[in-house]
Design a protein around this nucleic acid. Structure first.
Lengths: 249, 249
DNA sequence: GCGCGAGGTTGATCCAAGTCAAAAAACTAC
DNA sequence: GTAGTTTTTTGACTTGGATCAACCTCGCGC
Protein backbone atom coordinates (compact mmCIF):
# COMPACT_ATOMS: atom_id res chain seq x y z
CA UNK A 1 0.00 0.00 0.00
CA UNK A 2 1.29 3.46 -0.84
CA UNK A 3 2.39 5.62 2.05
CA UNK A 4 0.24 8.48 0.85
CA UNK A 5 -2.79 6.19 1.03
CA UNK A 6 -1.84 5.07 4.48
CA UNK A 7 -1.54 8.67 5.57
CA UNK A 8 -4.94 9.45 4.18
CA UNK A 9 -6.54 6.51 5.94
CA UNK A 10 -4.70 7.31 9.12
CA UNK A 11 -6.18 10.78 8.93
CA UNK A 12 -9.76 9.50 9.02
CA UNK A 13 -11.57 10.29 12.25
CA UNK A 14 -11.86 6.56 12.78
CA UNK A 15 -8.11 5.95 12.82
CA UNK A 16 -6.63 9.33 13.64
CA UNK A 17 -6.09 8.96 17.36
CA UNK A 18 -5.43 5.28 17.68
CA UNK A 19 -2.18 3.68 18.70
CA UNK A 20 0.33 3.48 15.84
CA UNK A 21 1.13 -0.11 16.45
CA UNK A 22 -2.54 -1.04 16.36
CA UNK A 23 -2.99 0.88 13.17
CA UNK A 24 -0.17 -1.06 11.63
CA UNK A 25 -1.72 -4.31 12.81
CA UNK A 26 -4.89 -3.33 11.05
CA UNK A 27 -3.15 -2.36 7.85
CA UNK A 28 -0.88 -5.37 7.72
CA UNK A 29 -3.76 -7.65 6.87
CA UNK A 30 -5.48 -5.11 4.66
CA UNK A 31 -5.74 -5.11 0.89
CA UNK A 32 -5.82 -2.01 -1.22
CA UNK A 33 -7.44 -2.70 -4.56
CA UNK A 34 -8.56 -0.78 -7.59
CA UNK A 35 -11.91 -1.64 -9.10
CA UNK A 36 -13.48 -0.61 -12.39
CA UNK A 37 -16.94 1.00 -12.39
CA UNK A 38 -20.05 -1.07 -11.84
CA UNK A 39 -18.32 -3.75 -9.84
CA UNK A 40 -20.30 -5.26 -7.02
CA UNK A 41 -18.07 -5.15 -3.96
CA UNK A 42 -20.59 -6.46 -1.50
CA UNK A 43 -23.75 -8.44 -1.90
CA UNK A 44 -26.31 -8.03 0.86
CA UNK A 45 -26.69 -11.16 2.92
CA UNK A 46 -23.03 -12.08 2.74
CA UNK A 47 -21.10 -12.41 5.94
CA UNK A 48 -19.21 -9.22 6.77
CA UNK A 49 -15.61 -10.23 6.31
CA UNK A 50 -14.06 -6.85 5.65
CA UNK A 51 -14.39 -3.28 6.71
CA UNK A 52 -14.16 -1.19 3.56
CA UNK A 53 -12.49 2.17 3.22
CA UNK A 54 -12.85 4.06 -0.02
CA UNK A 55 -9.82 6.14 -0.92
CA UNK A 56 -10.73 7.09 -4.49
CA UNK A 57 -13.86 7.07 -6.62
CA UNK A 58 -17.45 6.57 -5.45
CA UNK A 59 -19.47 3.66 -4.16
CA UNK A 60 -23.22 3.19 -4.13
CA UNK A 61 -24.82 1.41 -1.23
CA UNK A 62 -28.11 -0.11 -2.28
CA UNK A 63 -30.66 -2.65 -1.21
CA UNK A 64 -32.82 -5.05 -3.09
CA UNK A 65 -36.10 -6.74 -2.39
CA UNK A 66 -38.35 -8.64 -4.65
CA UNK A 67 -36.98 -7.23 -7.92
CA UNK A 68 -37.00 -3.71 -6.57
CA UNK A 69 -33.83 -1.84 -5.82
CA UNK A 70 -33.11 1.37 -3.98
CA UNK A 71 -30.06 3.51 -3.34
CA UNK A 72 -29.40 3.88 0.36
CA UNK A 73 -26.26 6.01 0.26
CA UNK A 74 -23.33 7.15 -1.83
CA UNK A 75 -19.95 6.83 -0.20
CA UNK A 76 -17.08 9.10 -1.16
CA UNK A 77 -13.40 9.20 -0.24
CA UNK A 78 -12.14 9.05 2.31
CA UNK A 79 -14.61 7.19 4.44
CA UNK A 80 -15.57 3.76 5.64
CA UNK A 81 -18.61 1.68 4.97
CA UNK A 82 -20.39 -1.32 6.47
CA UNK A 83 -18.78 -0.81 9.82
CA UNK A 84 -21.86 -1.98 11.70
CA UNK A 85 -22.10 -5.37 10.02
CA UNK A 86 -18.39 -5.87 10.61
CA UNK A 87 -18.53 -5.05 14.27
CA UNK A 88 -21.52 -7.27 14.84
CA UNK A 89 -20.01 -9.98 12.67
CA UNK A 90 -23.36 -10.12 10.93
CA UNK A 91 -24.55 -10.29 7.32
CA UNK A 92 -24.46 -7.08 5.32
CA UNK A 93 -27.84 -5.38 5.05
CA UNK A 94 -26.82 -3.48 1.94
CA UNK A 95 -24.98 -4.19 -1.27
CA UNK A 96 -22.22 -1.98 -2.59
CA UNK A 97 -21.04 -1.28 -6.11
CA UNK A 98 -18.52 1.10 -7.59
CA UNK A 99 -19.89 3.98 -9.61
CA UNK A 100 -16.52 4.86 -11.11
CA UNK A 101 -13.01 3.49 -10.98
CA UNK A 102 -12.38 3.28 -7.27
CA UNK A 103 -9.73 2.28 -4.83
CA UNK A 104 -10.87 0.40 -1.76
CA UNK A 105 -9.00 -0.70 1.33
CA UNK A 106 -10.35 -3.89 2.78
CA UNK A 107 -9.56 -4.55 6.42
CA UNK A 108 -10.33 -8.05 7.69
CA UNK A 109 -13.21 -7.96 10.15
CA UNK A 110 -11.42 -10.29 12.54
CA UNK A 111 -8.46 -7.88 12.77
CA UNK A 112 -10.85 -5.02 13.26
CA UNK A 113 -12.60 -6.72 16.13
CA UNK A 114 -9.30 -7.73 17.68
CA UNK A 115 -7.82 -4.23 17.62
CA UNK A 116 -11.11 -2.75 18.65
CA UNK A 117 -11.07 -4.96 21.75
CA UNK A 118 -7.57 -3.92 22.73
CA UNK A 119 -7.46 -0.23 21.83
CA UNK A 120 -9.89 1.89 23.83
CA UNK A 121 -9.16 4.98 21.78
CA UNK A 122 -10.04 3.11 18.63
CA UNK A 123 -13.16 1.71 20.27
CA UNK A 124 -14.22 5.24 21.08
CA UNK A 125 -13.66 6.33 17.51
CA UNK A 126 -15.74 3.42 16.27
CA UNK A 127 -18.51 4.37 18.63
CA UNK A 128 -18.49 7.92 17.41
CA UNK A 129 -18.51 6.80 13.78
CA UNK A 130 -21.34 4.37 14.39
CA UNK A 131 -23.38 6.92 16.29
CA UNK A 132 -22.93 9.33 13.40
CA UNK A 133 -23.99 6.74 10.84
CA UNK A 134 -26.98 5.87 12.98
CA UNK A 135 -28.05 9.46 13.19
CA UNK A 136 -27.61 9.80 9.48
CA UNK A 137 -29.99 6.92 8.71
CA UNK A 138 -32.47 8.28 11.22
CA UNK A 139 -32.41 11.56 9.32
CA UNK A 140 -32.95 9.73 6.06
CA UNK A 141 -35.88 7.81 7.51
CA UNK A 142 -37.38 10.98 8.94
CA UNK A 143 -37.17 12.58 5.52
CA UNK A 144 -38.90 9.65 3.90
CA UNK A 145 -41.72 9.61 6.42
CA UNK A 146 -42.29 13.28 6.97
CA UNK A 147 -41.56 14.98 3.68
CA UNK A 148 -43.20 14.60 0.30
CA UNK A 149 -40.91 13.96 -2.64
CA UNK A 150 -40.82 17.56 -3.82
CA UNK A 151 -39.86 18.61 -0.31
CA UNK A 152 -37.15 15.98 -0.10
CA UNK A 153 -35.71 17.22 -3.36
CA UNK A 154 -35.80 20.84 -2.24
CA UNK A 155 -34.08 19.90 1.01
CA UNK A 156 -31.44 17.97 -0.89
CA UNK A 157 -30.73 20.93 -3.13
CA UNK A 158 -30.44 23.25 -0.16
CA UNK A 159 -28.03 20.93 1.60
CA UNK A 160 -25.86 20.92 -1.48
CA UNK A 161 -26.09 24.58 -2.21
CA UNK A 162 -23.72 25.14 0.67
CA UNK A 163 -24.01 28.05 3.07
CA UNK A 164 -24.32 30.53 0.23
CA UNK A 165 -26.67 33.41 0.49
CA UNK A 166 -28.28 34.65 -2.65
CA UNK A 167 -27.53 32.59 -5.75
CA UNK A 168 -25.98 29.13 -5.40
CA UNK A 169 -24.41 27.17 -8.21
CA UNK A 170 -23.25 23.61 -7.93
CA UNK A 171 -23.16 20.31 -9.69
CA UNK A 172 -25.17 17.24 -8.82
CA UNK A 173 -22.63 14.70 -7.60
CA UNK A 174 -24.45 11.71 -9.11
CA UNK A 175 -26.69 10.72 -11.99
CA UNK A 176 -30.28 11.83 -11.60
CA UNK A 177 -31.48 8.27 -11.77
CA UNK A 178 -29.46 7.52 -8.62
CA UNK A 179 -30.53 10.71 -6.94
CA UNK A 180 -34.14 9.78 -7.61
CA UNK A 181 -33.62 6.37 -6.07
CA UNK A 182 -31.85 7.85 -3.08
CA UNK A 183 -34.67 10.31 -2.55
CA UNK A 184 -37.23 7.56 -2.85
CA UNK A 185 -38.87 8.49 -6.14
CA UNK A 186 -38.82 7.44 -9.77
CA UNK A 187 -36.56 9.18 -12.30
CA UNK A 188 -39.65 10.45 -14.11
CA UNK A 189 -40.86 12.01 -10.93
CA UNK A 190 -37.56 13.61 -10.15
CA UNK A 191 -37.57 15.17 -13.58
CA UNK A 192 -41.04 16.57 -13.04
CA UNK A 193 -40.21 17.74 -9.53
CA UNK A 194 -37.20 19.65 -10.84
CA UNK A 195 -39.44 21.19 -13.44
CA UNK A 196 -41.86 22.31 -10.76
CA UNK A 197 -39.01 23.88 -8.84
CA UNK A 198 -38.30 26.09 -11.83
CA UNK A 199 -41.01 28.37 -10.52
CA UNK A 200 -39.00 28.54 -7.34
CA UNK A 201 -35.95 29.77 -9.20
CA UNK A 202 -34.13 26.49 -9.71
CA UNK A 203 -32.48 26.15 -13.10
CA UNK A 204 -31.08 22.79 -14.14
CA UNK A 205 -28.86 22.10 -17.08
CA UNK A 206 -27.58 18.55 -17.11
CA UNK A 207 -25.93 18.12 -13.76
CA UNK A 208 -25.42 21.82 -13.24
CA UNK A 209 -27.87 23.43 -10.85
CA UNK A 210 -28.46 27.07 -10.17
CA UNK A 211 -30.56 28.07 -7.21
CA UNK A 212 -31.52 31.69 -7.68
CA UNK A 213 -33.59 32.12 -4.57
CA UNK A 214 -32.58 30.02 -1.61
CA UNK A 215 -35.29 31.55 0.54
CA UNK A 216 -37.98 30.38 -1.86
CA UNK A 217 -36.57 26.85 -1.85
CA UNK A 218 -36.28 26.91 1.90
CA UNK A 219 -39.96 27.77 2.12
CA UNK A 220 -40.65 24.38 0.56
CA UNK A 221 -37.90 22.35 2.16
CA UNK A 222 -38.19 23.92 5.60
CA UNK A 223 -34.69 22.72 6.34
CA UNK A 224 -34.01 21.73 9.89
CA UNK A 225 -30.76 20.65 11.51
CA UNK A 226 -32.54 17.62 12.92
CA UNK A 227 -33.19 16.33 9.42
CA UNK A 228 -30.65 18.11 7.26
CA UNK A 229 -27.81 18.39 9.71
CA UNK A 230 -24.23 18.14 8.63
CA UNK A 231 -22.95 15.13 10.57
CA UNK A 232 -23.13 13.17 7.40
CA UNK A 233 -22.39 9.64 6.49
CA UNK A 234 -23.44 8.46 3.07
CA UNK A 235 -25.34 11.48 1.93
CA UNK A 236 -24.64 11.98 -1.76
CA UNK A 237 -22.47 13.87 -1.76
CA UNK A 238 -21.07 14.27 1.70
CA UNK A 239 -17.69 15.49 0.59
CA UNK A 240 -16.75 18.68 -1.01
CA UNK A 241 -14.11 17.45 -3.41
CA UNK A 242 -16.58 17.27 -6.27
CA UNK A 243 -17.87 20.74 -5.70
CA UNK A 244 -14.32 22.00 -5.95
CA UNK A 245 -14.04 20.55 -9.44
CA UNK A 246 -16.94 22.40 -10.98
CA UNK A 247 -15.93 24.30 -14.05
CA UNK A 248 -17.88 26.08 -16.73
CA UNK A 249 -19.62 23.92 -19.24
CA UNK B 1 -33.21 2.81 43.29
CA UNK B 2 -34.50 -0.64 44.11
CA UNK B 3 -32.03 -3.48 44.01
CA UNK B 4 -34.30 -5.50 41.77
CA UNK B 5 -34.26 -2.64 39.27
CA UNK B 6 -30.51 -2.43 39.45
CA UNK B 7 -30.27 -6.13 38.78
CA UNK B 8 -32.53 -5.82 35.79
CA UNK B 9 -30.52 -2.97 34.35
CA UNK B 10 -27.30 -4.75 35.11
CA UNK B 11 -28.63 -7.67 33.10
CA UNK B 12 -29.01 -5.60 29.95
CA UNK B 13 -26.55 -6.54 27.21
CA UNK B 14 -25.21 -3.02 27.51
CA UNK B 15 -24.22 -3.34 31.16
CA UNK B 16 -23.93 -7.07 31.71
CA UNK B 17 -20.19 -7.54 31.29
CA UNK B 18 -18.87 -4.25 32.53
CA UNK B 19 -16.82 -3.67 35.61
CA UNK B 20 -18.92 -3.55 38.79
CA UNK B 21 -17.30 -0.42 40.04
CA UNK B 22 -17.96 1.35 36.76
CA UNK B 23 -21.53 0.20 36.84
CA UNK B 24 -21.91 1.68 40.26
CA UNK B 25 -20.38 4.91 39.08
CA UNK B 26 -22.97 5.08 36.36
CA UNK B 27 -25.84 4.33 38.69
CA UNK B 28 -24.75 6.70 41.41
CA UNK B 29 -25.67 9.71 39.32
CA UNK B 30 -28.73 8.10 37.82
CA UNK B 31 -32.34 8.87 38.57
CA UNK B 32 -35.11 6.34 38.48
CA UNK B 33 -38.45 7.99 37.96
CA UNK B 34 -42.02 7.00 37.34
CA UNK B 35 -43.99 8.90 34.73
CA UNK B 36 -47.70 8.91 33.91
CA UNK B 37 -48.81 8.21 30.34
CA UNK B 38 -48.45 10.82 27.64
CA UNK B 39 -45.55 12.58 29.25
CA UNK B 40 -42.92 13.96 26.91
CA UNK B 41 -39.59 12.73 28.21
CA UNK B 42 -37.49 14.13 25.43
CA UNK B 43 -38.07 16.85 22.89
CA UNK B 44 -36.10 16.55 19.69
CA UNK B 45 -33.49 19.24 19.35
CA UNK B 46 -32.64 19.27 23.04
CA UNK B 47 -29.12 18.53 24.07
CA UNK B 48 -28.70 14.88 25.03
CA UNK B 49 -28.10 15.07 28.75
CA UNK B 50 -29.23 11.61 29.78
CA UNK B 51 -29.15 8.09 28.52
CA UNK B 52 -32.59 6.64 29.20
CA UNK B 53 -33.34 3.09 30.24
CA UNK B 54 -36.93 1.98 30.40
CA UNK B 55 -37.64 -0.55 33.12
CA UNK B 56 -41.44 -0.57 33.02
CA UNK B 57 -44.11 0.63 30.61
CA UNK B 58 -43.67 1.72 27.01
CA UNK B 59 -42.18 4.73 25.29
CA UNK B 60 -42.86 6.06 21.82
CA UNK B 61 -40.02 7.59 19.87
CA UNK B 62 -41.35 10.02 17.31
CA UNK B 63 -40.27 12.86 15.10
CA UNK B 64 -41.95 16.04 14.00
CA UNK B 65 -41.57 18.27 11.02
CA UNK B 66 -43.74 21.07 9.87
CA UNK B 67 -46.87 20.01 11.77
CA UNK B 68 -46.45 16.40 10.71
CA UNK B 69 -45.51 13.73 13.17
CA UNK B 70 -44.39 10.14 12.77
CA UNK B 71 -43.66 7.26 15.08
CA UNK B 72 -40.12 6.05 14.65
CA UNK B 73 -40.04 3.28 17.24
CA UNK B 74 -41.65 1.91 20.36
CA UNK B 75 -39.30 1.08 23.20
CA UNK B 76 -40.15 -1.59 25.74
CA UNK B 77 -38.51 -2.72 28.97
CA UNK B 78 -35.79 -3.35 29.53
CA UNK B 79 -33.85 -1.41 26.98
CA UNK B 80 -32.08 1.87 26.39
CA UNK B 81 -32.90 4.70 24.07
CA UNK B 82 -31.16 7.70 22.55
CA UNK B 83 -27.75 6.20 23.09
CA UNK B 84 -26.34 7.70 19.90
CA UNK B 85 -27.17 11.31 20.74
CA UNK B 86 -25.69 10.79 24.19
CA UNK B 87 -22.46 9.34 22.92
CA UNK B 88 -22.03 12.07 20.35
CA UNK B 89 -23.09 14.69 22.86
CA UNK B 90 -25.44 15.96 20.18
CA UNK B 91 -29.07 17.08 20.05
CA UNK B 92 -31.72 14.37 20.06
CA UNK B 93 -33.12 13.61 16.63
CA UNK B 94 -36.28 12.14 18.06
CA UNK B 95 -38.74 12.97 20.79
CA UNK B 96 -39.94 10.46 23.33
CA UNK B 97 -43.19 10.16 25.22
CA UNK B 98 -44.61 7.58 27.56
CA UNK B 99 -47.52 5.53 26.26
CA UNK B 100 -48.44 4.19 29.67
CA UNK B 101 -47.23 4.62 33.24
CA UNK B 102 -43.53 3.99 32.88
CA UNK B 103 -40.40 3.84 34.94
CA UNK B 104 -37.28 5.33 33.41
CA UNK B 105 -33.69 5.36 34.56
CA UNK B 106 -31.83 8.44 33.48
CA UNK B 107 -28.06 8.22 33.39
CA UNK B 108 -26.18 11.49 32.97
CA UNK B 109 -24.50 11.60 29.58
CA UNK B 110 -21.30 12.96 31.07
CA UNK B 111 -21.01 9.92 33.36
CA UNK B 112 -21.76 7.68 30.44
CA UNK B 113 -19.00 9.17 28.35
CA UNK B 114 -16.57 9.05 31.25
CA UNK B 115 -17.15 5.39 32.02
CA UNK B 116 -17.23 4.57 28.37
CA UNK B 117 -13.77 6.08 28.00
CA UNK B 118 -12.32 4.08 30.85
CA UNK B 119 -14.03 0.72 30.53
CA UNK B 120 -13.18 -1.10 27.29
CA UNK B 121 -15.71 -3.84 27.96
CA UNK B 122 -18.42 -1.25 28.31
CA UNK B 123 -17.23 0.52 25.17
CA UNK B 124 -17.55 -2.75 23.30
CA UNK B 125 -21.05 -3.26 24.60
CA UNK B 126 -21.99 0.24 23.49
CA UNK B 127 -20.59 -0.45 20.06
CA UNK B 128 -22.58 -3.61 19.75
CA UNK B 129 -25.75 -1.86 20.91
CA UNK B 130 -25.22 1.02 18.51
CA UNK B 131 -24.46 -1.27 15.61
CA UNK B 132 -27.67 -3.13 16.34
CA UNK B 133 -29.70 0.07 16.48
CA UNK B 134 -28.12 1.21 13.27
CA UNK B 135 -29.01 -1.98 11.52
CA UNK B 136 -32.51 -1.73 12.85
CA UNK B 137 -33.06 1.71 11.33
CA UNK B 138 -31.54 0.56 8.06
CA UNK B 139 -34.12 -2.22 8.00
CA UNK B 140 -36.87 0.27 8.70
CA UNK B 141 -35.67 2.53 5.90
CA UNK B 142 -35.42 -0.40 3.49
CA UNK B 143 -38.98 -1.34 4.30
CA UNK B 144 -40.19 2.18 3.64
CA UNK B 145 -38.41 2.43 0.31
CA UNK B 146 -38.88 -1.04 -1.06
CA UNK B 147 -42.25 -2.19 0.18
CA UNK B 148 -45.71 -0.80 -0.41
CA UNK B 149 -47.83 -0.17 2.66
CA UNK B 150 -49.80 -3.39 2.39
CA UNK B 151 -46.54 -5.30 2.15
CA UNK B 152 -45.13 -3.50 5.18
CA UNK B 153 -48.20 -4.42 7.15
CA UNK B 154 -48.03 -8.05 6.07
CA UNK B 155 -44.36 -8.18 7.02
CA UNK B 156 -45.12 -6.64 10.40
CA UNK B 157 -47.81 -9.21 11.08
CA UNK B 158 -45.49 -12.04 10.15
CA UNK B 159 -42.74 -10.75 12.40
CA UNK B 160 -45.19 -10.68 15.26
CA UNK B 161 -46.82 -13.99 14.54
CA UNK B 162 -43.72 -15.62 15.93
CA UNK B 163 -42.20 -18.76 14.49
CA UNK B 164 -45.54 -20.54 14.47
CA UNK B 165 -46.48 -22.76 11.61
CA UNK B 166 -50.12 -22.96 10.70
CA UNK B 167 -52.42 -20.58 12.58
CA UNK B 168 -50.91 -17.74 14.61
CA UNK B 169 -52.77 -15.73 17.21
CA UNK B 170 -51.38 -12.68 18.93
CA UNK B 171 -52.23 -9.23 20.13
CA UNK B 172 -51.11 -5.98 18.58
CA UNK B 173 -48.79 -4.41 21.13
CA UNK B 174 -49.87 -0.85 20.37
CA UNK B 175 -52.84 1.17 19.21
CA UNK B 176 -53.55 0.91 15.51
CA UNK B 177 -53.08 4.63 15.10
CA UNK B 178 -49.47 4.26 16.30
CA UNK B 179 -48.90 1.18 14.23
CA UNK B 180 -50.09 3.07 11.18
CA UNK B 181 -47.70 5.90 11.90
CA UNK B 182 -44.84 3.50 12.49
CA UNK B 183 -45.54 1.74 9.21
CA UNK B 184 -45.71 5.05 7.39
CA UNK B 185 -49.41 5.20 6.56
CA UNK B 186 -52.57 6.84 7.80
CA UNK B 187 -54.91 5.11 10.26
CA UNK B 188 -57.58 4.99 7.55
CA UNK B 189 -55.22 3.21 5.27
CA UNK B 190 -54.15 0.72 7.89
CA UNK B 191 -57.77 -0.10 8.47
CA UNK B 192 -58.33 -0.68 4.77
CA UNK B 193 -55.12 -2.66 4.41
CA UNK B 194 -56.19 -4.97 7.24
CA UNK B 195 -59.49 -5.40 5.50
CA UNK B 196 -57.73 -6.37 2.29
CA UNK B 197 -55.68 -8.93 4.18
CA UNK B 198 -58.90 -10.66 5.21
CA UNK B 199 -58.80 -12.42 1.88
CA UNK B 200 -55.39 -13.66 2.92
CA UNK B 201 -56.79 -15.23 6.05
CA UNK B 202 -56.09 -12.43 8.53
CA UNK B 203 -58.86 -11.89 11.06
CA UNK B 204 -58.73 -8.84 13.29
CA UNK B 205 -60.87 -8.15 16.30
CA UNK B 206 -59.77 -5.09 18.20
CA UNK B 207 -56.15 -5.72 18.98
CA UNK B 208 -56.43 -9.47 18.61
CA UNK B 209 -55.09 -10.83 15.35
CA UNK B 210 -55.45 -14.28 13.93
CA UNK B 211 -53.33 -15.26 10.96
CA UNK B 212 -54.84 -18.39 9.50
CA UNK B 213 -52.45 -18.89 6.63
CA UNK B 214 -48.93 -17.68 7.22
CA UNK B 215 -47.85 -18.88 3.78
CA UNK B 216 -50.42 -16.67 2.09
CA UNK B 217 -49.26 -13.66 4.11
CA UNK B 218 -45.67 -14.49 3.37
CA UNK B 219 -46.45 -14.45 -0.34
CA UNK B 220 -47.26 -10.75 0.07
CA UNK B 221 -44.67 -9.78 2.65
CA UNK B 222 -41.87 -11.86 1.18
CA UNK B 223 -40.12 -11.72 4.51
CA UNK B 224 -36.38 -11.62 4.41
CA UNK B 225 -33.89 -11.69 7.28
CA UNK B 226 -32.19 -8.62 5.79
CA UNK B 227 -35.36 -6.60 6.34
CA UNK B 228 -37.27 -8.50 8.96
CA UNK B 229 -34.40 -9.92 10.95
CA UNK B 230 -34.59 -10.36 14.66
CA UNK B 231 -31.74 -8.18 15.95
CA UNK B 232 -34.30 -5.65 16.95
CA UNK B 233 -34.18 -2.29 18.60
CA UNK B 234 -37.33 -0.27 18.73
CA UNK B 235 -39.55 -2.46 16.66
CA UNK B 236 -43.03 -2.41 18.19
CA UNK B 237 -43.02 -4.75 19.91
CA UNK B 238 -39.51 -6.04 20.25
CA UNK B 239 -40.12 -7.78 23.52
CA UNK B 240 -42.11 -10.84 24.21
CA UNK B 241 -43.57 -9.91 27.56
CA UNK B 242 -46.73 -8.58 26.01
CA UNK B 243 -47.32 -11.66 23.93
CA UNK B 244 -47.10 -13.71 27.10
CA UNK B 245 -50.02 -11.79 28.55
CA UNK B 246 -52.52 -12.53 25.85
CA UNK B 247 -55.63 -14.10 27.23
CA UNK B 248 -59.05 -14.78 25.85
CA UNK B 249 -61.29 -11.82 25.39
C1' DG C 1 -77.69 3.69 33.13
C1' DC C 2 -76.02 7.95 30.27
C1' DG C 3 -72.89 11.14 27.95
C1' DC C 4 -68.60 12.05 26.31
C1' DG C 5 -64.35 11.64 23.88
C1' DA C 6 -60.86 9.05 21.65
C1' DG C 7 -59.96 5.53 18.57
C1' DG C 8 -61.42 3.02 14.65
C1' DT C 9 -64.03 2.14 10.34
C1' DT C 10 -66.20 3.30 6.01
C1' DG C 11 -67.24 5.78 1.89
C1' DA C 12 -66.48 9.53 -1.47
C1' DT C 13 -63.19 12.20 -3.48
C1' DC C 14 -58.70 14.02 -4.67
C1' DC C 15 -53.98 14.19 -5.54
C1' DA C 16 -49.20 12.65 -5.57
C1' DA C 17 -46.59 9.55 -7.52
C1' DG C 18 -45.98 5.31 -10.19
C1' DT C 19 -46.37 3.13 -14.82
C1' DC C 20 -46.09 2.81 -19.65
C1' DA C 21 -44.62 4.52 -23.95
C1' DA C 22 -42.10 7.31 -26.89
C1' DA C 23 -39.06 10.85 -28.06
C1' DA C 24 -34.98 13.61 -27.04
C1' DA C 25 -30.52 14.23 -25.26
C1' DA C 26 -26.14 12.64 -23.56
C1' DC C 27 -22.53 9.65 -23.48
C1' DT C 28 -19.49 5.52 -25.55
C1' DA C 29 -17.26 3.01 -28.59
C1' DC C 30 -15.81 2.51 -32.86
C1' DG D 1 -17.88 11.73 -37.40
C1' DT D 2 -21.65 7.57 -36.77
C1' DA D 3 -24.18 3.91 -34.49
C1' DG D 4 -25.76 2.24 -30.38
C1' DT D 5 -26.65 2.36 -25.69
C1' DT D 6 -28.16 4.69 -21.60
C1' DT D 7 -30.11 8.43 -19.32
C1' DT D 8 -33.46 12.01 -19.21
C1' DT D 9 -37.58 14.20 -20.42
C1' DT D 10 -42.42 14.48 -21.77
C1' DG D 11 -47.04 13.09 -22.09
C1' DA D 12 -51.14 10.15 -21.12
C1' DC D 13 -52.91 7.23 -17.94
C1' DT D 14 -53.49 4.46 -13.65
C1' DT D 15 -53.29 3.76 -8.95
C1' DG D 16 -51.98 3.82 -4.15
C1' DG D 17 -52.63 6.31 -0.58
C1' DA D 18 -54.07 10.80 1.59
C1' DT D 19 -57.85 13.70 2.84
C1' DC D 20 -62.37 14.86 4.38
C1' DA D 21 -66.50 13.74 6.55
C1' DA D 22 -69.70 10.83 8.65
C1' DC D 23 -70.49 7.28 11.62
C1' DC D 24 -69.61 3.54 14.67
C1' DT D 25 -67.69 1.54 19.00
C1' DC D 26 -65.45 1.06 22.84
C1' DG D 27 -63.82 2.61 27.38
C1' DC D 28 -64.51 5.65 31.08
C1' DG D 29 -66.35 8.82 34.42
C1' DC D 30 -70.33 10.41 36.42
Amino acid sequence: MRDSDLDEIRDLALFRDMDSEHFQNLMRGAYHQTFPPQVTLIEEGQQADFLHVITEGAVEMFARWNDRETTMAIVRPVSTFILAACINDAPYLMSARTLMPSRIVMIPGADLRKVFASDPIFAQAIVRELATCYRSVVRHAKGLKLRASKERLAAYLIRHAGPTTGVARFQLPIEKRLLASYLGMTPENLSRALRLLRDEGVAVDGLRVEVRDLAKLAAIARPNPLMDGAESCGEPDSNSHIRARIGSR
